[in-house]
Structure formats: C-alpha cells, structure tokens
C-alpha cells in the first residue's frame, strides 16, 4: 500500500491510508488539474498555436504539459535549502521526501531547476522559452509535422532575438536554454516511469 505521494503537484505527500487507490488518484487529479488548465490557457495564447489542428494541439499538450509545469514550477525546488514546496505551500526537505520513496527523479529536478533559475530569465524570456518547450515537432502522434515545425522555428527565432537583445554580452544563454530541452525530455521520461509505477501500484 502506497503511503506517500512525493509530487509537489499534490497538496501533501501524505496519503490517507483509509482511501482507496481510486480515491487517492482522484484527489491527486483534482490538485493538479488547475495547473494543467493554466498550461492549456498559456498554449492558447501562443501566437499560431490555435491555428494547428486540434489533434496536434492536444498531442503537444499531452506530451509537453509535464515539461511546461517543470519550467513554470522550477522555483518550488529550493536547491539552497534543499526543500520542495508542495501546492499547499508546505515545504518538505529532500531527506524527508527521500524517506518517503523519492529517488533519482527528485535529484534531477533539483539539478534542472537550479540551472534554469541561475539563468535569471525575465518573465518574457521564460514565457517564450516555455512556448518553445511546448511546441516541439518531434512529439509522438503529431499529424502535421510541417506546421508544428514551422511554428517551432518561429518561436526559436523569437527567443534567440529576445535573448540577444536582452543579453548582448551573454550569447551562451540561448545555447544553454536549447540544451535544457533534452534535459526536460529526460525528466519527462523519468516522470512517466514513476507515473506508470504509481498507476500500477496506487
């Protein structure tokens, strides 16, 4: 029986032992649903996103929501204090979460967050980077790869221009940001494995 749910999109890592697996799942779903809706609202505001086919909009969101949330909620991972803030606002130390079963994924999330925050991006830069994260033509199930690719290229060019304009002496920031994309993919894969384990053994 699972006693802990070490995901910051949950209100708390403690699971009510009296609840059924389905009940735990429902409660978890209710806690992360608003954040997912925000990702969808964000996607709708990306110029050109709504022009993609509905199938491709859904495919991009299905594949990329975790990565977008990881970027948006990077600040929940406090690398200095070694704590994670859950949606309830309560902080839990890494040691506590480790004792609850958190493993490599947590470490990788900390590493990613620390590096992303160190880039000190503005809100506009972060939004554009998040759009680049979401609009990736190589996600599975994309019907019209050319359309998604064209939008992706437009967004990458816009991000490059913005970074060059804001940080003319730090051109490596753009490269560093692009290198975050494969990092996010790896985190997404690790997270998917955790989800599978959770669903099989809720």
């Amino acid at each position: 029986n699972r006693m802990h749910l070490v995901c910051p999109m949950s209100l708390t890592p403690y699971v009510d032992p009296c609840k059924s697996g389905h009940g735990i799942w429902e409660e978890f779903s209710m806690s992360f649903t608003p954040a997912v809706r925000e990702v969808v609202e964000f996607a709708k505001r990306i110029p050109g996103f709504r022009d993609l086919s509905q199938h491709d909009q859904v495919s991009l969101l299905k594949a990329g929501t975790f990565e977008v949330l990881m970027v948006r909620f990077a600040s929940l991972f406090d690398a200095k204090e070694r704590t994670v803030t859950f949606l309830s606002g309560k902080k839990y130390s890494v040691d506590t979460l480790r004792s609850m079963g958190a493993g490599d994924l947590l470490n990788s999330m900390f590493e990613f967050s620390e590096k992303l925050i160190a880039l000190q991006l503005s809100e506009e830069e972060m939004s554009l980077f998040t759009a680049v994260v979401l609009v990736s033509a190589d996600r599975s199930g994309i019907e019209n790869v050319n359309s998604v690719e064209a939008l992706q290229e437009t967004l990458i060019r816009a991000l490059r221009s913005l970074i060059m304009k804001n940080h003319p002496n730090e051109t490596s920031i753009f490269t560093k940001l692009l290198l975050k994309l494969p990092d996010l993919r790896s985190l997404n894969n690790l997270h998917s494995e955790e989800l599978l384990a959770f669903k099989v053994h809720p």
Partner: peptide, 27 residues
C-alpha cells in the same frame, strides 16, 4: 499503461480546456 498522460486523465482535462475556448467564442 503505455500512455501515462492518458492514465492521469490529462487528455480529458486538456480537451475540455481547449473546447471551453470554442464554447466561449460561440457565446
């Protein structure tokens, strides 16, 4: 369990959120 996003009910949430916008437009 090959699709974690579907397992989470993510697709349903995403579809509803996207459709909501269409409804708004119709209104």
């Amino acid at each position: 369990f090959a699709d974690p996003a579907s397992n989470l009910g993510l697709e349903d949430i995403i579809r509803k959120a996207l459709m909501g916008n269409l409804d708004d437009k119709q209104d």
